[in-house]
Protein backbone atom coordinates (compact mmCIF):
# COMPACT_ATOMS: atom_id res chain seq x y z
CA UNK A 1 0.00 0.00 0.00
CA UNK A 2 2.68 2.49 1.02
CA UNK A 3 6.23 2.16 -0.28
CA UNK A 4 8.75 4.77 0.73
CA UNK A 5 12.17 4.59 -0.90
CA UNK A 6 15.16 6.62 0.14
CA UNK A 7 13.12 9.57 1.39
CA UNK A 8 15.07 12.70 2.18
CA UNK A 9 13.51 15.90 3.45
CA UNK A 10 14.78 19.41 3.88
CA UNK A 11 12.91 22.20 5.60
CA UNK A 12 14.35 25.64 6.38
CA UNK A 13 17.76 24.36 5.26
CA UNK A 14 17.62 21.56 7.78
CA UNK A 15 18.11 18.03 6.61
CA UNK A 16 15.54 16.06 8.62
CA UNK A 17 14.87 12.71 6.94
CA UNK A 18 18.03 11.20 5.50
CA UNK A 19 17.13 8.19 3.43
CA UNK A 20 14.09 6.58 4.98
CA UNK A 21 12.66 3.29 3.68
CA UNK A 22 9.31 1.90 4.76
CA UNK A 23 6.80 -0.58 3.33
CA UNK A 24 3.29 -0.90 4.69
CA UNK A 25 0.87 -3.58 3.47
CA UNK A 26 -2.91 -3.63 3.89
CA UNK A 27 -4.01 -4.96 7.26
CA UNK A 28 -0.79 -3.95 9.01
CA UNK A 29 -0.19 -1.69 11.98
CA UNK A 30 3.20 0.00 12.04
CA UNK A 31 4.50 2.05 14.92
CA UNK A 32 7.26 4.62 14.61
CA UNK A 33 9.08 5.42 17.81
CA UNK A 34 12.08 7.54 18.43
CA UNK A 35 13.54 10.40 20.42
CA UNK A 36 12.55 14.04 20.06
CA UNK A 37 13.79 15.63 16.85
CA UNK A 38 14.33 12.33 15.05
CA UNK A 39 11.90 13.30 12.25
CA UNK A 40 8.69 11.52 13.29
CA UNK A 41 6.30 14.42 12.79
CA UNK A 42 8.17 15.44 9.64
CA UNK A 43 7.39 12.02 8.23
CA UNK A 44 3.69 12.50 9.02
CA UNK A 45 3.68 15.95 7.40
CA UNK A 46 5.56 14.82 4.30
CA UNK A 47 3.20 11.88 3.80
CA UNK A 48 0.16 14.14 4.07
CA UNK A 49 1.70 16.71 1.73
CA UNK A 50 2.24 19.75 3.93
CA UNK A 51 3.76 22.76 2.14
CA UNK A 52 7.30 23.88 2.73
CA UNK A 53 9.17 20.57 2.60
CA UNK A 54 11.68 19.80 -0.09
CA UNK A 55 11.72 16.05 -0.68
CA UNK A 56 13.86 13.59 -2.57
CA UNK A 57 13.17 9.91 -3.00
CA UNK A 58 9.94 8.19 -3.81
CA UNK A 59 6.62 7.80 -2.02
CA UNK A 60 4.26 5.31 -3.67
CA UNK A 61 0.74 4.90 -2.42
CA UNK A 62 -1.32 2.11 -3.97
CA UNK A 63 1.01 2.13 -6.96
CA UNK A 64 0.85 5.87 -7.51
CA UNK A 65 3.63 8.39 -6.90
CA UNK A 66 2.50 10.77 -4.17
CA UNK A 67 5.35 13.26 -4.08
CA UNK A 68 3.78 15.89 -6.34
CA UNK A 69 0.15 15.48 -5.35
CA UNK A 70 -1.62 18.13 -3.27
CA UNK A 71 -2.61 17.64 0.34
CA UNK A 72 -6.33 17.47 -0.44
CA UNK A 73 -5.85 14.93 -3.24
CA UNK A 74 -3.88 12.69 -0.91
CA UNK A 75 -6.66 12.99 1.63
CA UNK A 76 -9.20 12.14 -1.04
CA UNK A 77 -7.14 9.11 -2.06
CA UNK A 78 -7.37 7.77 1.46
CA UNK A 79 -4.54 9.20 3.55
CA UNK A 80 -5.68 10.50 6.90
CA UNK A 81 -3.57 12.30 9.47
CA UNK A 82 -4.72 12.57 13.06
CA UNK A 83 -2.99 15.77 14.14
CA UNK A 84 -0.86 16.09 17.23
CA UNK A 85 -2.37 19.55 17.74
CA UNK A 86 -5.79 19.62 16.03
CA UNK A 87 -6.79 23.08 14.79
CA UNK A 88 -9.78 25.13 15.88
CA UNK A 89 -12.11 26.61 13.26
CA UNK A 90 -14.12 29.33 15.01
CA UNK A 91 -17.68 29.95 13.84
CA UNK A 92 -17.89 26.63 12.02
CA UNK A 93 -20.22 24.08 13.47
CA UNK A 94 -18.60 20.64 13.94
CA UNK A 95 -21.36 18.94 11.95
CA UNK A 96 -20.87 21.37 9.06
CA UNK A 97 -17.13 20.81 9.03
CA UNK A 98 -17.49 17.04 9.08
CA UNK A 99 -20.15 17.04 6.38
CA UNK A 100 -18.12 19.35 4.13
CA UNK A 101 -15.09 17.15 4.58
CA UNK A 102 -16.93 13.88 3.98
CA UNK A 103 -18.65 15.21 0.89
CA UNK A 104 -15.38 16.55 -0.53
CA UNK A 105 -13.86 13.07 -0.17
CA UNK A 106 -16.96 11.32 -1.50
CA UNK A 107 -17.15 13.65 -4.47
CA UNK A 108 -13.50 13.01 -5.34
CA UNK A 109 -14.13 9.27 -5.21
CA UNK A 110 -17.10 9.68 -7.56
CA UNK A 111 -19.59 8.82 -4.83
CA UNK A 112 -22.83 10.68 -4.26
CA UNK A 113 -22.65 13.52 -1.74
CA UNK A 114 -24.73 12.95 1.36
CA UNK A 115 -27.68 15.17 2.11
CA UNK A 116 -27.98 16.66 5.59
CA UNK A 117 -30.40 14.09 6.99
CA UNK A 118 -28.41 11.06 5.82
CA UNK A 119 -25.25 12.67 7.09
CA UNK A 120 -26.69 13.41 10.54
CA UNK A 121 -27.86 9.82 10.91
CA UNK A 122 -24.40 8.55 9.96
CA UNK A 123 -22.46 10.91 12.19
CA UNK A 124 -24.64 10.20 15.22
CA UNK A 125 -23.98 6.51 14.71
CA UNK A 126 -20.21 7.01 14.46
CA UNK A 127 -20.17 9.35 17.45
CA UNK A 128 -22.06 6.95 19.66
CA UNK A 129 -19.61 4.14 18.72
CA UNK A 130 -16.89 6.31 20.23
CA UNK A 131 -19.00 7.36 23.19
CA UNK A 132 -19.04 10.96 21.97
CA UNK A 133 -21.96 13.08 23.17
CA UNK A 134 -24.17 14.40 20.35
CA UNK A 135 -24.01 17.92 21.81
CA UNK A 136 -20.37 17.96 20.91
CA UNK A 137 -21.34 17.87 17.21
CA UNK A 138 -23.22 21.14 17.34
CA UNK A 139 -20.39 23.06 18.97
CA UNK A 140 -17.91 25.16 17.00
CA UNK A 141 -15.22 22.94 15.55
CA UNK A 142 -12.66 22.19 18.28
CA UNK A 143 -13.32 25.58 19.90
CA UNK A 144 -13.12 25.22 23.66
CA UNK A 145 -12.61 21.45 23.37
CA UNK A 146 -10.36 19.81 25.93
CA UNK A 147 -7.22 18.05 24.67
CA UNK A 148 -8.99 14.71 24.98
CA UNK A 149 -12.07 15.92 23.11
CA UNK A 150 -9.94 17.20 20.27
CA UNK A 151 -8.21 13.83 19.93
CA UNK A 152 -11.53 12.01 20.01
CA UNK A 153 -12.71 14.34 17.28
CA UNK A 154 -9.71 13.25 15.20
CA UNK A 155 -10.65 9.60 15.60
CA UNK A 156 -14.27 10.40 14.79
CA UNK A 157 -13.12 11.98 11.53
CA UNK A 158 -11.01 8.94 10.77
CA UNK A 159 -13.98 6.64 11.17
CA UNK A 160 -16.14 8.96 9.11
CA UNK A 161 -13.76 9.43 6.18
CA UNK A 162 -12.76 5.74 6.09
CA UNK A 163 -9.17 6.20 4.94
CA UNK A 164 -6.99 3.32 3.76
CA UNK A 165 -3.93 4.66 5.56
CA UNK A 166 -4.33 6.38 8.91
CA UNK A 167 -1.37 8.21 10.37
CA UNK A 168 -1.66 9.01 14.07
CA UNK A 169 0.81 11.68 15.06
CA UNK A 170 1.34 11.41 18.81
CA UNK A 171 -2.37 11.04 19.29
CA UNK A 172 -1.67 9.64 22.75
CA UNK A 173 0.14 12.71 24.02
CA UNK A 174 -1.76 14.59 26.67
CA UNK A 175 -4.46 11.95 27.04
CA UNK A 176 -5.66 10.52 30.32
CA UNK A 177 -6.11 6.78 30.50
CA UNK A 178 -9.85 6.86 29.71
CA UNK A 179 -9.40 9.02 26.62
CA UNK A 180 -6.47 6.83 25.58
CA UNK A 181 -8.71 3.77 25.71
CA UNK A 182 -11.40 5.49 23.64
CA UNK A 183 -8.84 6.41 21.01
CA UNK A 184 -7.42 2.87 21.00
CA UNK A 185 -10.90 1.32 20.80
CA UNK A 186 -11.66 3.62 17.89
CA UNK A 187 -8.58 2.43 16.05
CA UNK A 188 -9.15 -1.25 16.87
CA UNK A 189 -12.77 -1.14 15.77
CA UNK A 190 -11.83 0.47 12.46
CA UNK A 191 -8.85 -1.81 11.73
CA UNK A 192 -9.43 -4.43 9.03
CA UNK A 193 -7.57 -6.40 6.37
CA UNK A 194 -7.84 -3.60 3.80
CA UNK A 195 -6.55 -0.63 5.77
CA UNK A 196 -3.34 0.16 7.56
CA UNK A 197 -2.05 2.35 10.38
CA UNK A 198 1.11 4.29 10.96
CA UNK A 199 1.26 5.21 14.62
CA UNK A 200 3.80 7.78 15.71
CA UNK A 201 4.47 7.81 19.41
CA UNK A 202 7.06 8.43 22.07
CA UNK A 203 5.80 5.83 24.44
CA UNK A 204 4.87 2.19 24.69
CA UNK A 205 1.66 3.25 26.51
CA UNK A 206 -0.61 3.43 23.40
CA UNK A 207 0.89 0.22 22.05
CA UNK A 208 -0.44 -1.62 25.11
CA UNK A 209 -3.88 -1.05 23.60
CA UNK A 210 -3.16 -1.12 19.87
CA UNK A 211 -0.94 -4.08 19.04
CA UNK A 212 1.49 -3.17 16.27
CA UNK A 213 2.78 -5.71 13.73
CA UNK A 214 6.02 -3.77 13.37
CA UNK A 215 7.85 -1.22 15.43
CA UNK A 216 10.43 1.00 13.73
CA UNK A 217 12.88 3.13 15.60
CA UNK A 218 13.58 6.43 13.88
CA UNK A 219 16.79 8.13 14.80
CA UNK A 220 18.53 11.02 13.07
CA UNK A 221 16.34 10.79 9.98
CA UNK A 222 16.64 7.05 9.36
CA UNK A 223 15.01 3.87 10.56
CA UNK A 224 17.73 2.29 12.64
CA UNK A 225 15.89 -0.76 13.90
CA UNK A 226 12.73 -2.69 13.07
CA UNK A 227 11.15 -5.34 15.23
CA UNK A 228 7.86 -6.76 16.40
CA UNK A 229 5.70 -5.63 19.31
CA UNK A 230 8.35 -6.74 21.79
CA UNK A 231 10.75 -4.05 20.61
CA UNK A 232 8.56 -1.45 22.27
CA UNK A 233 8.69 -3.20 25.58
CA UNK A 234 12.44 -3.54 25.28
CA UNK A 235 12.85 0.18 24.51
CA UNK A 236 10.73 0.98 27.51
CA UNK A 237 13.45 -0.61 29.63
CA UNK A 238 16.63 0.41 27.82
CA UNK A 239 15.73 3.73 26.16
CA UNK A 240 16.72 4.92 22.67
CA UNK A 241 20.36 5.56 23.45
CA UNK A 242 21.06 1.85 23.55
CA UNK A 243 20.28 1.70 19.81
CA UNK A 244 22.37 4.51 18.51
Amino acid sequence: MLNIKNLETIIDNKHILKGLNLNIKPGEVHAIMGPNGSGKSTLANVLSGKNGYITKGDIQFNGERLNDISTEERAQKGIFLAFQYPLEIPGVNTNIFLKTSLNAVRKAKGEKELDTLTFLKLIKEKASELGIDEKFLSRQFNVGFSGGEKKKNEILQMKLLEPTLSILDETDSGLDIDALKIVADGVNSYKNKDNAFLIITHYQRLLDYIKPDFIHVLSNGKIVKTGDANLGLQLEKTGYTSLS
Binding site: T71, A75, L102, A104
Partner: peptide, 18 residues
Protein backbone atom coordinates in the same frame (compact mmCIF):
# COMPACT_ATOMS: atom_id res chain seq x y z
CA UNK B 1 -5.90 25.90 9.56
CA UNK B 2 -5.74 25.71 5.78
CA UNK B 3 -3.43 22.69 5.94
CA UNK B 4 -5.77 21.00 8.37
CA UNK B 5 -8.77 21.57 6.08
CA UNK B 6 -6.76 20.37 3.06
CA UNK B 7 -5.88 17.23 4.97
CA UNK B 8 -9.60 16.65 5.42
CA UNK B 9 -10.07 16.67 1.64
CA UNK B 10 -11.06 20.31 1.11
CA UNK B 11 -9.29 22.20 -1.63
CA UNK B 12 -7.88 25.67 -1.05
CA UNK B 13 -11.03 27.52 -2.14
CA UNK B 14 -13.31 25.36 -0.04
CA UNK B 15 -11.03 25.73 2.95
CA UNK B 16 -10.90 29.53 2.66
CA UNK B 17 -14.66 29.66 2.21
CA UNK B 18 -15.25 27.57 5.30
Amino acid sequence: QLYYCNQRGLDQEEAVSL
